[in-house]
Structures are given as C-alpha cells and as structure tokens.
Amino acid sequence: MYGYIARRILSTIPVVLIVGVIVFSLLFVAPGDPAAIIAGDQASPADVERIRRTLGLDQSFLVQFGHWFSRVMMGDLGTSIFNGKPVTELIGLRLGPTLSLMSVTLTFAVLIAVPLGVLAAARQGTWVDTGVMMMAVLGFSLPVFVVGYLVTYVFALQLQAFPVQGYRPLDEGFWPWLHGLILPALSLGGVYIALIARVTRAAMLEVLGQDYIRTARAKGLGLGRVLFLHALKNASVPVVTSIGLGLALLIGGAVVTESVFAIPGVGRLTVDAILQRDYPVIQGVVLVFSFVYVGVNLMLDLVYTLLDPRIAY
C-alpha cells in the first residue's frame, strides 16, 4: 500500500511541473505591460521604460523562467509587482475565505445532493425522479452570477436575513462566519448540487439493480437501511470521484462568487492579477490551485482504496 501511495505521489510531480511551464510561457507572451499600469495614467513614457527595467521585465524568456523556477524550487513564489508583498503572503491572506467558501459549499452540496440522488434513484421513473432531475438540469443552466443576484435580492435585500457581502474570519465566531457564507455557498453550490445528485442517482441505479440488494430487501431490511447503508456505500466511488473532479468547477465558480459577494478570496486575487498583469501572482496562484486540485484528487484516489477494497493498488 505504501508503495502505491509513493508511486501515486511521484506521478503528480510531472503534472505540477508541466503546469508550471504552461503557466509561465502563457503569461510571458501576454500583451499588456505591468510597468505601464504601475506608472499610472499620468506617467511619461520614459518613466514607464525605467520601471520596466527595474522590474526585470526587459529580460529574455529563458532568463526570466530560470530565475522564476529556481526561486519556486526554494518555496519562493516571488513578490507582487503591484504592492510588493510576497506572493505566498498574498495567497495566505486569501486562502481562508476561499477554503471556507469551498468547504461550506461542499458540505451543503453533499448534504443536499446525495439524499436527492438516492431519492431519485429509489423512486426511479416517478415524478420525484423527474423533478429532481429537472432541478439538476436547471442547476447547470444559469450562470453563477445571476443566481447570486437572485439570492441577494430575495434573502439579503427583501428578507434582510443575510449580509449582502463580506467575509468574517472563523475566529470572530462560528455563526458570523457561517452566516456570511450561506448566500455565496447557495449560489456557488447550484452546479455542484446538480452534478453530485446526477452522479449519485446514476451510481445508485447501477447498484440497486444488483442481486445482493434484492437479497437484503428480501431479508426484510428497511428501505432506508438498504439505500443508505448498503447501496450508497457501494455507489460511493463515482460519487467521491465527482466531488474531486468537480473541484475545478468549484474553483472556477468561486472566482465569480467572490466578486459578487465581495469575498476577499484567492479567486478574486487571480482575476485581479490577470487583469493587472501581475505575473508573479498569476503564476503563484495557478500553481497553488493546481497543487490543491492534484492533491485533493490524490487523496481521493487513496480514499477509494479504503472505500472499495476491490480496487487494486
């Protein structure tokens, strides 16, 4: 088992390396000059040129890549061109809100979607099934920001039940933290709920058709027990996979959700950095996101081996 884990971890190294090369070369050829933005609207062209030189932006691709790569190897992601803060610090400041948003969304989504999927599978072909599936399709059909505006209007402006924007760190209390994240999680979670509900239903249908489930039912076990204890456990591999792969979806959605709800997270950091051409930040963030994605999927891979002993490693 440890051999498998080691091999699996090693296999992620080239992936992350490739991401580094992709990201660095993408941004190197990008138009848009950070020096011009830094200098400001009223600066003279000569000022812009001088700033460009002091930032090392006038050097060749290989030189810049070499510098960058050797620093990354030492855990230094560079400093932001715009505010001079270390990229690791910038990401550190923003990680809390994003992780909070994602974990709350994930929890909500799983709590809502899995029972819905199980229900739909158990009542296959009935109006319950059709209803759940229609909702799931609808979940894919609206852009996140439209959902965000709708929930803001109803729950924050009309009912005054939730704040419109902002993030309160966890150490200000669990409730203030959660309170501010409910609306963002609701709008971000739509797609995710749809995804997980569909996968759960499909996986359950497959399992429910198998003999041992019929046997269990025949033995007189209650429907609930059969569904949630026996069937769901065996349907869990695709469900867990979808949670992991959907993470990319969640990160993409977080970019928009964080803008709509003014949450100071990593998603917004990234978009701001892209629009400002803050190269070190873009590179750092995309690397970190890739790490998270690769890491989570690595963990899930390892979890499968625990969930389903039939998978060889």
Binding site: P31, G32, D33, P34, A36, I37, P45, L275, Q276
Partner: peptide, 8 residues
C-alpha cells in the same frame, strides 16, 4: 492594463 501598455 493592455491599453496602458499599448498606448506607449
């Protein structure tokens, strides 16, 4: 950002 750069 791009305007800022290209206009130079």
């Amino acid at each position: 950002a791009t305007v800022g750069s290209r206009r130079a």
